[in-house]
Design a protein around this nucleic acid. Structure first.
Lengths: 215, 215
DNA sequence: TAGATTGTTAATCGATTAACAATC
DNA sequence: TAGATTGTTAATCGATTAACAATC
């Protein structure tokens, strides 16, 4: 059976649509046209219609899109209609910050465990979860159904940890380690490279200053 | 004078090149061809050559690229050859995590101050910096030369804060608030929307599971 | 010099935008 | 029904890849 592959460019825009639709819901707006939405979001109406039509018709000619319905459909596409259980490996500042972040819970991402190799951090409490020693990771993975592993560890440890994860059937990694993970096909990795982002900002600062100088 | 605009797609790849070149330097590799680099990085050699040639010729026919030289050129393009002074607004978990992250310092990003509106957080010490009350922000901006403001605040506060920043001549914002900032032309915003990233991961988990089911 | 590999032009591919027929 | 607005095809634009002449 043929399944049309949807480009990551489209997927990358869905969370932003969802955010605007959530705002519209909060404002009590019932329906919206691609034209109105395009003005709010600063993208073309054409792109909005194309994007939505990747998933079938969510709108109605002459009417537009029902906000509530569209919101719920995009939620489903993004898999937000069911729960994801995650653990965090690396109980440093960033790991603890993510563990404490309550908004993930509201989206159905459930914080189930936290691991670190440092004895100084083991036993620490993060939102009701006690940091466990990394030696217990494998056993924990076998005993619990974990959907997502969040990696907030230095890149030097990342390779070893990833091997353990792969051996234990983990299918999805949210990677904050500053390294490209080498995983088998079928395992999903989403990278958040903060320093890359900061460098992009730095580039654009330079560019703007240069442009300003040219005027 | 005509300056060719370089696409953000290219800029987005530069930090990754820099990372691989840094690794090569550490390994003591002196020169590398686009072909060899392409195998390591899993991109086409053609793309590598095109990317570098946006900035003029860094290589030499028959030889390849000098690792040290290329590394230093890309550093310069990204503006990493001079210092950037930054402050963090929002001393919650994420803000403190970023303040404590030492790697930014190594790249020339200097942590100069931290602000929060909550009295519980004011006075707290983050890597030698005392959290200041948000009321002192404006005065601080006038007294210090700040290049980048890192926003780790809830979206409800973001709009007000951004106004203060704009009025005080801030040119660059690294935005972790889950909202699109509305800033005048000439001000650079780099967004890190963590929940968007997590939703993308969630989508891809679903997709893989579906594909696996199809086989 | 001959071989290697870049710099750069041309071809292809994919994503975005425009246009409009279908239809609510 | 007439007007509005989608769904979808066609046109355009930009980014990636291929090819090869230039040159170290």
């Amino acid at each position: 059976m043929e399944t049309k592959e949807i480009s990551q460019a489209v997927i990358g825009r869905l969370p932003r649509y969802l955010r605007y639709l959530g705002d519209l819901k909060d404002e009590g707006v019932e329906r919206i046209s691609s034209q109105e939405l395009s003005e709010r979001m600063q993208v073309t109406a054409s792109q909005i219609r194309q994007d939505f039509n990747n998933f079938g018709g969510f709108g109605q000619q002459g009417y537009g899109y029902n906000v509530e319905y569209l919101y719920s459909e995009i939620s489903k596409i993004l898999g937000l209609d069911h729960k994801h259980h995650f653990i965090i490996i690396g109980a440093g500042n960033l790991g603890r910050a993510l563990g404490n972040y309550l908004n993930f819970e509201r989206r159905g991402f459930i914080f189930e465990g936290m691991f670190d190799k440092s004895p100084d951090l083991v036993g620490m409490d993060v939102r009701g979860i006690k940091v466990m020693p990394i030696e217990e990771l494998e056993q924990f993975l076998k005993a619990n159904q974990i959907d997502i592993v969040v990696l907030t560890i230095p890149k030097t440890s990342a390779v070893d940890i990833v091997n353990i994860l792969v051996e234990n059937g983990i299918r999805a990694i949210w990677n904050f380690a500053h390294v490209d993970l080498d995983v088998p096909d079928g395992i999903v990795v989403e990278n958040v490279h903060l320093s890359d982002s900061l460098m992009k900002l730095s580039y654009n600062i330079n560019r703007k200053m240069y442009e300003a100088g040219q005027e």
